[in-house]
């Protein structure tokens, strides 16, 4: 949403996480994870349930403070910064468990974020534009509390976009959608990266979507990064196959 359309891929580094560790009691949810993402780049974050993907997102977006390691964004150190500060810096995220503002309309939900950079009237226009872009135009004035799960997921996306982020952290936004909705979403996500120049990190179980979208895939298992690289290479990696299907030994 910000800046002019940029060339696909080959952007400059926007976010870098180095050696992130987060423990919950005896469990190491995120263990020495490093990761970088550039503008216009789409990174797929995959791994079995409980691998630490959402915990990693929570660290990158300020919900969780890491026990060690650092996060830099746009050349600034933002390790341990609050959610508010991360959002203002340009980190937009969706929640896996959708969290709409239920007493507001779809339009108002998105306006809340658009007000970060625009006065009221401009925020209203901007919000309507974003709502239409994610395909929710007909639902603009509907109360968010009355939406179906599918629409709530789209609203999450619209809310993440509303703050005009430089990076989008998408937490399983395709889960529960049907095939045609998934295809629409794939086009949408691609346009964010290639037309708007946003960096995207997406947690996704839908491997078809990851394979067709991601420039790079990062695989987590038990909190550790076990593989990173081109999608085609990563899915053939024996360590990844073992993590998903179980190893022989």
């Amino acid at each position: 949403m910000t800046g002019t359309p940029t060339q696909a891929a080959a952007g400059k580094e926007l976010m870098r996480a180095s050696g992130l560790v987060r423990r919950f009691g005896g469990l190491v949810a995120v263990n020495e994870v490093s990761l970088s993402v550039a503008t216009s780049e789409i990174v797929g974050l995959i791994g079995p349930n409980g691998a630490g993907k959402t915990s990693l997102f929570n660290i990158l977006s300020g919900q969780l403070k890491p026990d060690s390691g650092s996060v830099s964004f746009s050349g600034k150190d933002i390790t341990g910064a609050s959610v508010t500060i991360c959002a203002r810096a340009g980190i937009g995220r969706t929640f896996q468990i959708v969290k709409p503002l239920t007493s507001l309309t779809v339009h108002e939900n998105v306006m809340v974020g658009a007000l970060l950079h625009h006065p009221l009237a401009a925020a209203r226009d901007k919000a309507a534009e974003i709502v239409r872009r994610v395909g929710m135009g007909p639902l603009l004035e509907r109360p968010a509390g009355s939406l179906t799960l599918e629409s709530r997921k789209r609203l999450e996306l619209a809310r993440a976009l509303s703050i005009e982020p430089k990076i989008l952290l998408l937490d399983e936004i395709l889960a529960g959608l049907n095939a045609s909705e998934i295809n629409e979403s794939i086009h949408l996500i691609r346009s964010f990266a290639h037309e708007d120049g946003l960096a995207v990190i997406m947690i996704e179980h839908n491997l078809h979507a990851v394979m067709s979208l991601a420039d790079k895939v990062v695989v987590l298992d038990y909190g550790r990064k076990i593989a990173e690289g081109k999608p085609e290479a990563v899915v053939r990696d024996p360590a990844v196959v073992a993590a998903y299907l179980g190893s022989d030994d």
Partner: peptide
């Protein structure tokens, strides 16, 4: 949490 993630 949602409010904070909108930069509020």
């Amino acid at each position: 949490a949602t409010a904070a993630s909108a930069g509020i």
